[in-house]
Design a protein around this nucleic acid. Structure first.
Lengths: 145, 145
DNA sequence: TTAAGTGCAAATTATTTGCAGTAAG
DNA sequence: CTTACTGCAAATAATTTGCACTTAA
C-alpha cells in the first residue's frame, strides 16, 4: 500500500535475489538494489522509472536512470512486473501480476491498487475473430471531491 | 466503427460547424476541416494527433501538426472530445462522450469501441475520503489469437 | 574468458510553446 | 480593428540506443 520507499534490509535483498533467480535474470548490483526496493518487503508497489530512480539513489544505490529504464523493461519482459498506462505521459510499473483494478489519483498522479475483492465485470464482449483478450484494464480515476 | 476517413461532404461541414458552435469555438478553416473529419458522418471516431493530421492532409486540408495538437486539446477542454490513454506513448481522442469500454488492438495499435451495451461493473469500491470517482476506464486489450 | 549488463551522452518520439503573421467577429 | 488562431521552429519530457567499459558466470 505504501508506495515509494522500503528499507533495503538484508532480508529484502534476499527476497530480491530470489525474485531475479526465479526468472533467470543475472543478479547484478543495480538489479538487486532495484529489486529490493520493489519487492523487498513483500508488499506490492507502483513506480515510475523516475520515482524508482529517486528512491534508489536516496537509499544510496548507484544506478543510472538509463539502467532503471532498461531494468524495468527487462523485469517486465521476464514477467516480474506489469506496465500500466494511465497518464499518457509516463509509464507505471506494478509488482502485482494478477489482473486487478487501480485507483488513479488525478491530482497527485499516483497509482494505487483499488481495494476490491469483489469486482465483477459482467457482459464483457467476445473477442473479435482472430483475436483473444489479453487483459482487461480497469482504472478508477479519482478527483478531489 | 470505421475510424480514419470520412468524406468531407457539405453536410459534414454543416455538422462540424454546429459542433463548434455548440461550445462557442471560433469556426476557423482548420477547425472546420478537422471537425468535419471527426463528426462529419455522425459516427464516432478514435484518432491520434498524427492520424487526424494525415487524414486531413490527405483530404487536401491545409493544417499544421501543431495546430492539430492544439485543436484536439481545445476540443477536449470544450467537452467535445475525450482523451484516452492506452498505449503510453500516444494519446487517443474519442468523439463519443459517454463512459464506455474500448478494445485496444495491441498489434495494430488501434482503439475502437467495444460493442457492449450491457457491460456492468459490480462491486466497484467507494471513492476514498475526500475524493470522488471522475471516471472508470475499461480497456479490453486484444492480441492475435 | 566472454557474453550480458551498465552508464553515459546523443538520438527519438510525442507533445508543447514562443512568437510573428493571418483571419474571424 | 482587435483578439484569437495558425504555423513554423525551437523547446521539453519521457524513453531508447550506440558504444566503450565492467562484471557475473
Amino acid at each position: 500500500m505504501n508506495d515509494e520507499l522500503s528499507p533495503v534490509t538484508p532480508s529484502a535483498v534476499r527476497t530480491g535475489t530470489d525474485w531475479l533467480a526465479r526468472v533467470g535474470l543475472r543478479p547484478t548490483r543495480q538489479r538487486l538494489s532495484l529489486a529490493a526496493h520493489l519487492v523487498g518487503d513483500g508488499k506490492n508497489r507502483h513506480v515510475t522509472a523516475e520515482s524508482l530512480y529517486t528512491a534508489s539513489r536516496t537509499a544510496g544505490a548507484k544506478v543510472s536512470l538509463a539502467t532503471v529504464y532498461n531494468t524495468l523493461r527487462a523485469f517486465c519482459e521476464a514477467g516480474l512486473l506489469t506496465e500500466i498506462t494511465v497518464d499518457g505521459s509516463k509509464s507505471y510499473f506494478d509488482t502485482r501480476m494478477d489482473e486487478h483494478p487501480h485507483f488513479y489519483w488525478e491530482d497527485s498522479h499516483r497509482l494505487t491498487d483499488a481495494p476490491v475483492e469483489d469486482l465483477r465485470i459482467l457482459g464483457l464482449p467476445e473477442a473479435p475473430e482472430g483475436t483473444e483478450i489479453a487483459r482487461v484494464d480497469v482504472v478508477i480515476r479519482l478527483k478531489r471531491a
